[in-house]
Design a protein around this nucleic acid. Structure first.
Lengths: 124, 124
DNA sequence: TCCATGTTCAACCGAAGGGTTGAGAATGCC
DNA sequence: GGCATTCTCAACCCTTCGGTTGAACATGGA
């Protein structure tokens, strides 16, 4: 099913899920490894991954016992296009981009400055 | 309070609220006028507007009896920047930065694509 | 075969979301 | 003042969400 904006934005509204996406930005990961930095059960992370997959934000491929999660930016692009419809942003300013980089490149603490779910993402 | 990505994306995840934003793209509107095309109570729309305002997506200004709603694209910009990170970078690297700059410097064509507000108005 | 590993399923729980209705607070108009 | 208009508040209802735990399924390795 083609993911709707509803499901995409809803998926993005949870800090844990955004953190997962950020982690996947670096590399594909197995479910267990995705769950490791978070202080919640594996089942909970598994549910989050299903939500992300339903939104089309990630793809999951099973190889052997292990299910690999891979970022799939197309859905994000769709949402981004919707936003561009609000012509008010003539251009994205650099301040905003810097804030983005701070958020996303911060060493390994996945949660942005905004929130704090898990702890350190031990590098894979 | 600075609206978080949580609240911004959550606000965007509802079709009624996105439709409202689209309507406000054309013009500022009073609460009653915002509610008019929808098949739900005024109170429900009022709640939606509070959520949009808390997310920083709209501003509300009371003049006389009437409360005017105005689009406020800053929050959208913040969310958009977050998403651009995934849309443009396969992995974070400096090439990505260059591509970002290309986007950033692209001429602001669009006064806003004319879309019809009614599309997904009465969800359910 | 038996066991450990990786992941999901099922049932449950409390909190939040989206809607309703009815009452109530401001404000503008006569 | 009296009344209509505009909007929010409060209480409620039902569903969804995010989490838990324990069991089950699937696979790989000894």
């Amino acid at each position: 099913m083609a993911p709707s904006l509803d499901t995409i934005f809803a998926a993005l509204s949870d800090p844990t899920r955004r953190a997962i996406l950020t982690m996947l930005l670096e590399d594909d990961m197995a479910v267990t490894d995705v769950a490791e930095p978070f202080e919640m059960s594996l089942a909970a992370i598994s549910k989050h991954l299903v939500i992300l997959a339903n939104a089309g934000l990630i793809a999951q491929e099973k190889r052997g016992r292990v299910k690999w999660c891979k970022l799939q930016p197309d859905a994000l692009r769709e949402a981004s296009v919707w936003m561009q419809g609000f012509g008010q942003f003539e251009a994205i300013n650099l301040d905003a981009f810097e804030r983005f980089l701070e958020t996303e490149l911060a060493p390994a603490d996945l949660p942005g400055p905004d929130e704090e779910p898990g702890e350190e993402a031990s590098g894979r």
